[in-house]
Design a protein around this nucleic acid. Sequence first.
DNA 1: CAGTGAGCGAGCTTCCGCTTGACTT
Length: 775
Amino acid sequence: MAKNLVIVESPAKAKTIEKYLGKDFEVKSSLGHIRDLPSKGMSIDIKNGTFEPTYEISEDKTKVVSELRKAAKDKTVWLASDEDREGEAIAWHLSIALKLDEKKTKRIVFHEITKSALEEAVAHPRHIDKNLVDAQQARRVLDRLVGYEVSPVLWKKIRTGLSAGRVQSVAVRIIVEREQEIEGFESTSSFKVTAEFDLSSGTATAPSLLRAELPEKFKTEKEAHEFLKKCVGAEFEVSDLETKPAKRSPAAPFTTSTLQQEASRKLGFSVKQTMMTAQRLYEAGKITYMRTDSVNLSNQALSQAAKEIEKKFGKKYVQTRKYKTKSAGAQEAHEAIRPTNLSQDTISGDSGQERLYNLIWKRTIASQMAEAELERTTATIKISTTDRTLSAQGEVIKFDGFLKVYFESTDDDSGTNPLEDKMLPPIKVGQELKLDHMQARQTYARPPARYTEASLVKKMEEMGIGRPSTYAPTISTIQDRGYIEKGDREGRQRFFTVLVLKKDKIESDEQSEITGAERAKLFPTEMGEVVNDFLVKNFSNVLDYNFTARVEEEFDRVAEGKEKWNRMISDFYEPFHKEVKKSEDVSREEASQMRELGKDPETKKPIFVRIGRFGPMVQMGTKDDEEKPRFASLLPNQKMEEVTLEEALELFKLPRSVGKTEEGEEITTNFGRFGPYIKFGSTFVSIKPEDPFTITHKKALELIAEKKKQEAEKNIQIFDNGIKVLNGRYGPYITDGKKNAKIPKDKEPKKLTLAECEKLLKDAPAKGSRRRFKK
DNA sequence: CAGTGAGCGAGCTTCCGCTTGACTT
């Protein structure tokens, strides 16, 4: 039996390490953290000012811990979790939870999984670094204090179930403020002049058109027009021709953040999709660990890359490099994301895995390839009637280098191929040019771009908020909470003027274009805006963009032993808690941005707009009135700041009666959670795309008849005690009105007996028991 | 994923970082 137990964090890592260490070592994994603060309650000693946390073994880790306990018995235990704050804390928690004997416990770290690196690590064990552990505790406690003191204020003031936190609230703020920038953006227009010259000397290989542009833009149409007028009958001549060499370098190997960005831009993946696919590749041993902030490649990978590049492209394409991390707060416990075997440029798997793998392979290989060498030519064109000159640019690739394999995209990618030469036609200094036409086109300044999931991750990384393991979950959380939405927006038509000078005549033309269309961009919801306003107003410190960077400095001081962690937390908590108390005095009306629109002409009651339990709504009367207030949700296209009294009164016209059914039942119509509907008795019928304000009696009866037909087909079996077998949207199912059950494949829904149905219902999982983010 | 359609209630919700869960359509 092995005398040594090595514990790492990930099972895939355990498997590879075991191969290298020989049979004296058994390797197991902890699956990340094994102890944490309980999810219920604060579990921090605030009263005595020690901020001492109470940990418990996480519910889903009890099995792991008991297995590790068993495996650790009578063995030397090597704690080999990552060499960062969280990794050190995992080692410490393990030593406590497994009740390890200090004399037989060793802490080791390694940065690459090779036999020599592992032997080196085993030869130099150390003790757990308690200062580093304390820095993690400070991080953990601070996040708990912020999250669990601020969220309840939101429940009381705005809506139950909301959340706030050091990371998520700043992420929401970024989106909200970007939207405000876009709304406040005043698009100015200017006129850009371009000219095309006809070169009769054009050959089959060289273009016969020379495109040039005026480097400056004109602010007004008048100025642009004056310039074109000056050019009427002018002579044009090449006055200067300058050629300069230029270089382009490859991008660094992938980190979590850059992988998410490129997979989004090149493959259209969401950040979640990227991480799930990468996880599969990692588990299959195809790539290194996918949650990393390091751009470093192991020496072994570097030499393998060099060998591959030489084999595939030749020696002059090889240029190995060591990249340095730029991002703030990087902890670099792992390598960059790369293929484990660089000689494999493709793999077989599902199409997502194949594409992501190939992307990682290309990026890794390109990062070790030679720079691309270009030649940029600038031609200056003199105009006989003015001092202004036109300029034409061409670019020729002399040596493609890394571009042969891969080039990084940008967010506003126009989809141009960087390998395509943009050559100038053959021209000489002093050559006269014949103008084909010149135009001045009105162009508009563009507002700042909305974020995509991936560009938000990039921004977060730059600001040092969040970690590779949390980018994707954080982006899911703020969408689940209803703070931001991923969506599309249709573009609008915009007109612009083009002045064209051709054959000595200037003509003006009005043209239109579609602008502002968005796909899969992040938009704040009104809830997101209201919550953000409240948080920024009341918790300016935590919501400050530099808050995380500041506390990270403090955590570093704790890690270096220069400051005690609970002292640091105490210094933070005192003013923070004052802010919490103060925020509790803000009225619900103010927090929910309640605003009076005016009075109802009939009842004279005040009408308000505010955010409510289910989103933006209008309210007639107040809760102190004898009669209960009336409520109506805003329509999806209405905004709280813009809604008028007239629109609100319109909303209160619902529910509206549209007549009676054939049986004499009243039909009413309204907007509901799932869109517009009509209702008779207790039956709801969706009327999309009809509209409750305009739907006719006739149309309502038609829809009701259709619904009744569907209902008739819906019931498969009905038992006396209320248990039903129904035909639902997702196939047949059993229900007792409270709980639903699936029907096994081998059973026929029509022939199920009551006893069988009862049993299936009993065995079915309780409704709502499947939590979305089960830890 | 969810088999629906509220609006005050009772009791519940919530943080950030580590890691992989796996009943089937």
